[in-house]
Design a protein around this nucleic acid. Structure first.
Lengths: 114, 114
DNA sequence: TCTTATACTTCAGAGTCCAAAGCTATGGAG
DNA sequence: CTCCATAGCTTTGGACTCTGAAGTATAAGA
C-alpha cells in the first residue's frame, strides 16, 4: 500500500505493449490515412486528381489535409512543376514506403474480410 | 472519349491497391484504436480501469466508444461478471488477434522512430 | 469573351473528441 | 439511516474534424 510511485502500474508485463504511442500512429489514425499511403505507394507517383479518382469517397479537402499531414510527418514528397495548368506529383519517401510495407498485411486481410 | 464507362479509371495498375476499403479499416482509423487493439492483445484480458491506466491520454468516453465499436466489429469479447462492485473483462477475438498480429510490425517501427 | 484545365482553399453544418460530473448498485463506517 | 467507496460506464457542453459545394489562380484555345 505504501508505495513511492503513487499508482501507475503501466506496461509491467512480459510481452510488449505500445501504450501512449504517438507520432506517426496519430497521423495514420485519421480517416482515409492508411488507404492513402497504400494508394500512393502502389504507384511511383500520383497527381492530386488521380488520388481523388482512387479515393472517391473522400472529400477534396480531406485528401488535401491528409497530404499536408503526411508531408509534415515526412511520409510523402510533394513535387511541384510550375506549368500551366499546374502539375503536382506525390510520392512516398523512404519512411513512407516503410509504413506502406508494414501496413500491407493489415490492408490485405481487411480487404479479404469485406 | 466515347466510352461506355463514363470516366472511372481506378486501380488499373499492375500492383495492388486497396482503394475504397472500408469495414475494419474504418474502425481502426480512429483515435487510439490501433493502440487499444495492441494493449488488449498484449494481455490475456483487461478490465476497463486497466485499459484507462495504459492509455491515460484518452478520455473515458473515447475508450468506451472504441470498445463498443470493436465489439460491433467482432474484434473483442466483453465478459461481464455480475458482482458488486461489477467486473467486466475485455479480450481479443480470433479476428482481433489477427488484426493485432498484422498491426505489430507497424507499431514496432513507429515506436522506434519516436 | 467564354470555356477548359489543375490543384487546391474556404465555408457552414454535421459528426467526433475532450474533461468533468453524474449514475447504478451494494456493503461497511459513523 | 445517511455517507462513502468501488467499477464501469453515460451525459454534458465546448472544441476540434470531416463533409459537399462553391470559389481562386493562371494561361491556352474557340
Amino acid at each position: 500500500m505504501a508505495d513511492t510511485t503513487a499508482d501507475a502500474p503501466v506496461c509491467d508485463i512480459d510481452g510488449m505493449c505500445y501504450c501512449p504511442l504517438t507520432g506517426v500512429i496519430d497521423t495514420l489514425s485519421r480517416k482515409y490515412a492508411m488507404q492513402l499511403v497504400s494508394i500512393i505507394g502502389a504507384h511511383d507517383s500520383l497527381r492530386f486528381a488521380e488520388i481523388e479518382a482512387h479515393l472517391s469517397t473522400a472529400s477534396t479537402s480531406t485528401i488535401s489535409k491528409r497530404l499536408d499531414e503526411f508531408e509534415d510527418a515526412g511520409l510523402i514528397d510533394r513535387t511541384q512543376y510550375n506549368e500551366i495548368p499546374p502539375r503536382v506529383e506525390y510520392s512516398l519517401t523512404d519512411d513512407g514506403d516503410e509504413v506502406r510495407t508494414r501496413l500491407e498485411p493489415l490492408l490485405e486481410w481487411a480487404s479479404a474480410a469485406e
